[in-house]
């Protein structure tokens, strides 16, 4: 069955529609410290996907009943701007944005020393400026950089990327047409030092073998992303002579 607007083939002569090899990432740019008013912030672009993350806190919890006596209350708010998609995106929270906010908080939580900031709140505001698939993974990757920039105590950074299946072939870092018309999409996030997985979602169908291959592909790509995160943070803080 073909859907409206579906290109006849997603892989032509071994190359994908944007000219990438199956296991090639889109070009990534990360910059730390872009929002002066925030405690920490980061800007990330991967291909045409562009997100800005600002971290505020730790600060007093509002409303107060959400405060936890033994740990920080981590709040992530994922939002897509009205102009981030080709059709206007209706502003305000949606079912999808609430889901992504929740999984982002759960993906970042294990990397943060939550217990070092009892009775406080940590806000992570994620704004998608342009969406071209992979916004949740971009959001998590950028959030980790923003949290580190805010001086939050962390066990490790968190890197995130998706892989999937298009035209029966396993590929890394899907972009928009591949995401819309592909057969499967598997976003994961890991803590690069240990390789522990903090997020794993799947959309579509995969065999057990395919899943294993995609996980290996994602792990390898995350190490590459980790290098970019590290470089972005060091660039901001290293002494410029």
């Amino acid at each position: 069955m073909t859907k409206v607007g579906q290109p006849p083939k997603l892989i032509v002569r071994g190359k994908r529609l944007d000219g990438r090899a199956p296991d090639q990432l889109r070009p990534i740019k990360i910059k730390a410290g872009v929002v002066p008013n925030a405690a920490g912030s980061a800007e990330l672009s991967i291909g045409d996907t562009h997100v800005i993350v600002a971290v505020y806190g730790p600060r007093e919890v509002v409303p107060r009943h959400l405060a936890r006596p033994d740990r920080v209350y981590l709040e992530c708010i994922y939002d897509m701007t009205t102009f981030s998609t080709s059709d206007r995106n209706r502003p305000g929270p949606s079912r999808r944005s609430r889901e992504i906010s929740k999984v982002t908080a759960e993906a970042l939580g294990p990397a943060i020393f939550l217990e070092h900031y009892p009775k406080t709140e940590l806000d992570v505001y994620i704004e998608v400026i342009n969406a071209s698939a992979g916004t949740r993974t971009a959001a998590i990757t950028a959030s980790a950089v923003a949290l580190a920039d805010a001086g939050i105590e962390m066990r490790d950074l968190v890197c995130s990327i998706a892989a999937g299946k298009i035209d029966g072939q396993l590929v890394l870092d899907l972009f928009e047409p591949e995401d819309n018309f592909g057969q499967a999409d598997l976003p994961i996030s890991i803590m690069p030092r240990t390789g522990e997985i903090t997020l794993l979602q799947m959309d579509g169908d995969l065999t057990k073998e395919e899943l294993k291959k995609l996980l290996a592909m994602n792990q390898k790509a995350c190490q590459e992303i980790y290098k970019k995160q590290k470089a972005a943070l060091k660039e901001k803080y290293e002494v410029k002579k």
């Binding site: 405690a39 920490g40 806190g57 730790p58 600060r59 020393f113 580190a148 920039d149 805010a150 001086g151 939050i152 105590e153 962390m154 066990r155 490790d156 030092r193 943070l233 803080y237």
Partner: peptide, 24 residues
């Protein structure tokens, strides 16, 4: 031994310290 925040390393004998560069 790992660093917990972004910071500068200070080594004094056996003690490895990370002095934070940012944070509230």
């Amino acid at each position: 031994i790992y660093a917990a925040t972004i910071g500068i390393v200070d080594v004094r004998g056996r003690v490895i310290r990370v002095v934070p560069l940012s944070g509230c």
